[in-house]
Amino acid sequence: MDLNKNKPEAAPARRRYVTTRRLDRIFVELAKVYRFNARFFKEVWFPPYEFREIIKQCYEIGVRSLPLISLTGFIIGIVFTNQSRPSLADFGATSLLPALISVAIIRAIGPLVTALIAAGRVGSAIGAELGSMRVTEQIDAMEVSATNPFKFLVVTRVLASTLMIPALTMFTTLVSLLGGYLNVHQNELTSLSVFFYQVFDAITFLDIIASSVKSVIFGFTIGMVGCYKGYNSSKGTEGVGKAANSSVVTAMFLIFIEELLIMQVINTIRAF
């Protein structure tokens, strides 16, 4: 029995112990994340390339997400335009709506909304699928049959996610702009050609590059987080639920952090 347990001087020592244990766990987790990422970059270059699985995952992530992404993008385009109009109308500047929509959607809303929806749909699906494969020993079964499960399950999904999220972002951006156009056309009677002339006039090549780079990073993050959480899940069915849940939460958190950092970098470049 610990006789010091109830002594007043034992409390700070215990707090220090708990803090050290927590810090230990954080550093161990960071090391595991680093090793997982390093393994991806090591394995992605060497055969076998599992093209069939990559195409299957591209279909799952890209094509299957289209209906949800389209609907959300379209609604966001309409709502954003509608909510922005009164502010511009106060200055008699509703003619600037296409430019405002363009800058907002192409620079930020398009990539961000696509990534957040994909984190919810794709990230959780990857986390749950790999998590359940881990707890039902399907990943071990692959390993003992001399198939590299990391290459077959992780590399393919991360690649598919990195390829498909930029494509989905382009699509969402276009659909959002169309939603915005419908609203502008209904209220200001602007034609399609004038609307899109103003849209493209307001953005620069840097905006398109930044948006593309951002969506590639978001795609990689969603795939990697989902795979990491699922591949390393444990504790049975409870672990599968946790893997799916933390895939979404962690990916969303990282997406916001990345958005903030990339925005700072792009603004710095723009200043030059």
Binding site: E129, S132, M133, T136, E137, Q138, D140, A141, V144
Partner: peptide, 13 residues
């Protein structure tokens, strides 16, 4: 080496 798992570990997809 062939490994037969306790819960069969068939690829369920």
């Amino acid at each position: 080496i062939g490994f037969s798992f306790q819960n069969s570990a068939l690829y369920d997809s």
